[in-house]
């Protein structure tokens, strides 16, 4: 899984506002599509975080760590942090720490994947 070209090195996945039951599968697909690249998960828009989307994010962190590629969370919204907190993830760093990589230096990137905003009601 480390064989992907380094040129499209950094991917960004922007999380939608509502991370509920319906958002889990598209989120998993979007993250999978970025596998093998450095990943920035943009959590700025998040208003609601559910258990299943948390699972996907945690699984992504584990996956990126298994691939030995950095993953970071950018601009977490207060609601996102509160959601993590409620579900037993103390902070965004806990999530990032799973991938055991220092954060990225350069937030400018290509290969952005944006989730369908219409998922949110």
């Amino acid at each position: 899984m480390n064989t992907l070209p380094d040129s499209a090195a950094i991917a960004t996945v922007a999380l939608p506002a509502i991370l509920d039951l319906r958002a889990a599968t598209p989120l998993a697909n979007a993250l999978l599509a970025s596998r093998g690249r450095e990943l920035i998960i943009d959590a700025e828009q998040v208003q609601r975080l559910g258990g299943q989307c948390l699972q996907v994010l945690l699984s992504a962190a584990l996956t990126w760590r298994a691939d030995d590629i950095p993953l970071s969370i950018s601009k977490p919204s207060p609601d996102f942090l509160e959601g993590l907190d409620l579900l037993g993830i103390r902070s965004v760093h806990m999530l990032e720490a799973l991938s055991s990589h220092p954060g990225l230096n350069d937030p400018e990137q290509d290969g952005t994947v944006v989730l369908d905003k219409d998922l949110s009601r």
């Binding site: 699972q55 996907v56 584990l62």
Partner: peptide, 20 residues
């Protein structure tokens, strides 16, 4: 405390499953 010890990697994850 969140125990995600049974959580698989993304490729094997059923996004609508329950692992936590």
């Amino acid at each position: 405390a969140c125990d995600f010890s049974t959580l698989p990697l993304l490729g094997e994850l059923d996004p609508e499953g329950a692992y936590l």
